[in-house]
Write a protein that binds this DNA or RNA. Structure first.
Lengths: 131, 131
DNA sequence: ATTTAATGTGAGAAAACCTAACATGTTATT
DNA sequence: AATAACATGTTAGGTTTTCTCACATTAAAT
């Protein structure tokens, strides 16, 4: 788990917000969880709390569903794409990075990106909103 | 209005999450709102929804309060700092935490994921976590 | 000793979310 | 065409979270 992992996996959003961000119904989101495509955290009182990773994943699921892929297929695909993203993550791949390398990386992360309209959210977009 | 305004002003977080992120009680947060130091959005059902800007602001308020400044003073200061942050280049902005300090913090986070010490969070830091 | 400022606490109400069950609309299969 | 499987809608009843409002408490200033 790299440095950015911490933020991206922080359970922050209630389902109501996620519904808006991903444009999905509560029923859909819970259904995907039922099929183990996502595993949002829970509060002490059992309310779901979603991370940015969860939301990105939901956008991916939505995308794949629209391509006619079913739960089983999506599950397989997501399992692969997750493995890939871990291998591709520069921080995760080089945990023994020198201080200067890490410093350079962090500076790059601090750069401000441009604006994006929320209504046109697609899989992967969220990672550009939040880092 | 800068490009990043859209994301940073998006009402996303319920008060429960903000309490954890800023390490403040609900009472404190509502009190600051009562004194117009923050103006979180509301759901249709009247629940507060905080943006990243709101949370940064809360961290600033906390900071200023610890310095012994009262509501009135903080209000004035925040009015100024807001104006400045709009006019100032966000990248060139002088950090409250040096890059070295941030790097050290992030390293610690990488070693124990999910165990970010909230107390180490200060005003403005959040904008580096989320973009 | 008061007053003021910031925060704690509790009550009662409402919103948001939970699970579970059943219903509906599609698509695939027989 | 009938049936089955899949994804989603809907409703019901219950729990958690948040709301406002009021009163209490603590610490600092007068």
């Amino acid at each position: 788990m790299g440095g950015s992992e911490i933020r991206r996996t922080m359970p922050l959003f209630p389902i109501g917000i996620v519904m808006q961000l991903a444009d999905l119904s509560a029923r859909q989101i819970r259904y995907y969880e039922e099929h183990e495509l996502i595993s949002p955290a829970r509060t002490e009182g059992n309310r779901r709390l979603f991370s940015l990773n969860d939301i990105d994943r939901l956008l991916e699921i939505k995308d794949l569903l629209e391509q006619g892929i079913n739960m089983a297929g999506i599950k397989k695909i997501l399992a692969v794409s997750q493995k890939e993203s871990v291998e591709r993550d520069p921080v995760a791949k080089k945990p023994e990075m020198t201080d200067d390398e890490l410093r350079t990386l962090l500076k790059k992360e601090m750069l401000s990106p441009g604006k994006i309209s929320r209504s046109s959210l697609r899989a992967g977009d969220l990672s550009r909103f939040f880092r």
